[in-house]
């Protein structure tokens, strides 16, 4: 059962916050248009770190839901594997968060990439079911045609990068 405390009906009201990573350092080679630079983990992480949690005014990075070390890229093989960690093991938002990550990567990456989004092993009670649903491209495609759902996803994806001034911590 959903536990209830005060305030809005939220499952994890007081999540632990994590420090944001420093901005990526841009190397001279990257600025050089003549050099083809392959995608790396940091780039993938940068794409998804600012996705907002559907329930909190916090980014997935600040909640430690996504981490750079859990973004695996094989540019040669065209594969990207992202693993994410819901804040609590029975988080009902886990599927939606996974969908947001998938959609963000779908929008931002060249179509040659095969993207896999999964839950960190043992991080959720319905891990297998959620992974299966996120891997089903037909279900994802249909979900993206649901106007109610896409509205929420867009709010999460296109939210301005949160800053600490926005977050009031007592």
């Amino acid at each position: 059962m959903t536990p209830s405390t005060g305030g809005p009906a939220m499952e994890n009201q007081n999540p632990t916050l994590y420090k944001r990573a420093a901005d990526r350092e841009i190397t001279p080679a990257e600025l050089d248009n003549n050099v083809v630079d392959p995608f790396d983990a940091r780039e993938i992480f940068d794409l998804i770190r600012n996705i907002n949690d559907p329930e909190h005014p916090l980014s997935l990075e600040e909640l430690n839901v996504v981490e750079e070390r859990l973004c695996l890229v094989n540019d040669q093989q065209n594969t990207i594997d992202v693993t994410f960690t819901p804040t609590i093991p029975h988080c009902s938002m886990a599927t939606l968060i996974g969908l947001c990550i998938r959609v963000k990567l779908l929008h931002a990456l060249p179509p040659r990439f095969k993207v896999t989004v999964k839950i960190s092993p043992g991080a959720h009670v319905s891990e297998a079911a959620i992974n299966k649903q996120l891997a089903d491209k037909e279900r994802v495609a249909a979900a993206l045609e649901n106007s109610h759902l896409i509205k929420v996803i867009n709010e999460c994806i296109f939210a301005a990068p949160p800053t600490f001034s926005k977050i009031i911590r007592n």
């Binding site: 959903t2 536990p3 209830s4 405390t5 005060g6 305030g7 809005p8 009906a9 994890n12 009201q13 007081n14 609590i88 007592n170």
Partner: peptide, 15 residues
């Protein structure tokens, strides 16, 4: 949606 009684929010608590 669950109707939740408003009680004073306890910050910093863990469930």
């Amino acid at each position: 949606p669950v109707v939740v009684e408003k009680i004073k929010s306890v910050t910093g608590s863990k469930i």
